[in-house]
């Protein structure tokens, strides 16, 4: 039973479900919510790569999300640029800003890094809010175009955009999966585990952290650009710390430093929020304490909790086995 819930099966099931989802429900609104969840997931994966695998908690990610969204918005609305060119540029612009921020931010550690990025996030938000001649300030940016056709494929209805976002999300997951399960992923974990130790075994911690940071902001920018073209309207609020905290909540509930955590956390929170519509602005009355309790009792979220439980289960089984014969545990449970 436990063996069935391994990484591959869970992901395959989720993929199957998300591909079939539009056929299960004909409800446009549900489709809208699902697409939005996928977009958040991309951002959460960005945050996870950084906070989960190198241990650096960035509180500036809503800022990078907003940079991606505004870059796309401004390039298409004000510069009248081709959509896909603007889309690529939006991701690149975000990464370049990420590179410069990372160069300085990553010289700081722990609390300083968190505070520093929190301030960077706030600067980004304030600049968007106040630079009215460029961003239209609090009025927001309207009339952002939907993705333009790719060959014969048009993105003129909710269903096609759903599949576009899903495709990009799957690509992101594939990329993250491959990174995490490679020498690079081990390197990042070594850094999270102990930077001093990583440095003594010859790892250039700065170079690796910077790579992850830039990649992480790239994902945030990608999510932002998708958001802008999906919602078609953006305001400075998408860069506020509230969004960073939302992303963080999704990540923590799902499981920080786990591969499937961002999916699980985002889906659960977004759908629970839908059910708690009447709470709307007060949903943090529930999610705030949930965040705090999780970090005290289940610091690795739902997925981490399941993995730990499976470890225990596996070990029990192994112990039983090794009583009879001296076999090596042949299969180890992989990190969730």
């Amino acid at each position: 039973m436990a063996a069935f819930f391994n990484q591959r099966n869970v992901i395959a099931l989720l993929v199957l479900f998300s591909v079939a989802f539009p056929f299960i429900t004909q409800n446009e609104y549900f489709l809208h919510i699902m697409t939005l969840s996928f977009i958040w997931m991309i951002g959460v994966y960005g945050l996870n790569l950084l906070a989960g695998y190198t241990g650096y908690l960035s509180l500036a990610h809503a800022g990078f999300f907003a940079i991606g969204a505004y870059s796309l918005g401004l390039l298409t609305v004000k510069a009248q640029m081709n959509f896909w060119l603007a889309f690529v540029l939006a991701c690149l612009i975000t990464s370049v800003v990420g590179l410069f921020v990372g160069l300085i931010a990553l010289r700081t550690k722990e609390h300083f890094f968190a505070i520093y990025t929190l301030c960077v996030g706030y600067i980004i938000y304030l600049v968007i809010d106040k630079w009215e001649s460029l961003t239209e300030g609090v009025r927001g940016l309207i009339g952002i175009p939907a993705p333009s056709n790719i060959g014969p494929i048009a993105f003129d209805n909710a269903l096609s955009i759903y599949y576009l976002v899903l495709t990009i999300l799957l690509l992101v997951i594939l990329v993250v999966y491959r990174i995490v399960h490679s020498l690079n992923g081990r390197t990042y974990l070594a850094i999270r585990n102990s930077e001093d130790l990583a440095q003594t075994i010859g790892i250039s911690t700065m170079k690796n952290k910077l790579t992850v940071f830039v990649l992480s902001t790239f994902f945030a920018g990608l999510a932002g650009a998708l958001y802008a073209s999906f919602v078609r309207f953006i305001g400075p609020d998408i860069g506020s710390t509230a969004i960073t905290f939302d992303l963080l909540t999704y990540l923590l509930v799902g499981g920080i430093g786990t591969l499937s955590g961002p999916i699980v956390g985002t889906i659960i929170i977004v759908w629970v929020s839908q059910q708690l519509q009447f709470l709307q602005d007060y949903r943090m009355l529930i999610f705030g304490p949930v965040l705090t309790l999780l970090i005290i009792f289940y610091p690795r979220g739902i997925v981490g909790g399941v993995v730990d439980w499976r470890h225990k289960y596996q070990e029990k089984k192994n112990r039983k086995l090794s009583v009879n014969s001296l076999v090596k545990p042949e299969k180890q449970v992989k990190e969730g």
Partner: peptide
Amino acid sequence: VIVGHRLRTKSNLLDAILR
């Protein structure tokens, strides 16, 4: 222990993404 030999290897992020 595997990561201990990382310094003698050259593969980068792109290698990881493209396997």
